[in-house]
Design a protein around this nucleic acid. Structure first.
Lengths: 115, 115
DNA sequence: TGAATATATGAACAACTGTTCATATATTAA
DNA sequence: TTAATATATGAACAGTTGTTCATATATTCA
């Protein structure tokens, strides 16, 4: 490749780049998508979408160890995709907000659209 | 952990599980989120969101090799997150549909909300 | 108190990912 | 044709991730 192809207008590219969020934001977005990229964590969200649940309920529903569920929940929690409430000896998790519901919904619609 | 904690109602869990999309769909969703999880690919989408662009324009805008851009675009293309059009010797890429725009928008709003 | 239950976390290892390098293919123009 | 430009792709390597295992912490109840 050359330095610049015929189509490139450095000035125009400059303008477009200004509208790309800065690195900090991009990093956080990719962390969020990263969290949504695991089968186990996605299934957790599909369950929590219906009803808040404690760790052992999730453990029963999914077929992974308690440790795996707990690690998964931590990842989701750290990105504020799920939130926590203590309830006696149980720790109840629930979907954080509407953005999270929409993210899942949009992605589901996207993949269901094809075939 | 025990086999079942006090909160667990196997019958209820069964019902909740029926509303979790099947493995095939979950796999495709996690592939989509996986594709959205890279800085480079996210930046590509933020650029394409403003205007369709050819590979060398993207290469100029981002600071990575042509190969990296091309690999990234392939990933996005395979999941139908971007689409392609030939234009003479150029290959023009553009955002596939509104789902993709919404996915990015929801995630951006989510991360901008915090601090 | 102590035992049982519920959850969290660090370590470790296999599996996966993104980038670059080298090279191949495709298109245009001379 | 040939040269130049534009894009795609396979290989390979460093870095990252998800799981399990072992163990620690927290809460309840006897």
């Amino acid at each position: 490749m050359q330095d610049k192809c015929e189509r490139v207008s450095p000035k125009h590219i400059e303008v477009l780049l200004q509208k790309v969020p800065d690195t900090e934001i991009i990093k956080r977005m990719s962390a969020v998508f990263q969290a949504l990229q695991s089968d186990t964590r996605l299934k957790i969200l599909f369950l929590l979408r219906q009803k808040e649940m404690c760790v052992c309920e999730l453990e029963q529903a999914l077929e992974v160890t308690q440790s795996a569920v707990s690690h998964g929940l931590r990842t989701l929690r750290q990105l504020d995709l799920v939130r926590v409430r203590r309830e006696g000896k149980f720790t109840v998790y629930y979907i954080a907000d509407e953005h999270v519901r929409m993210l899942i919904e949009m992605c589901l619609e996207h993949v269901e659209e094809k075939k």
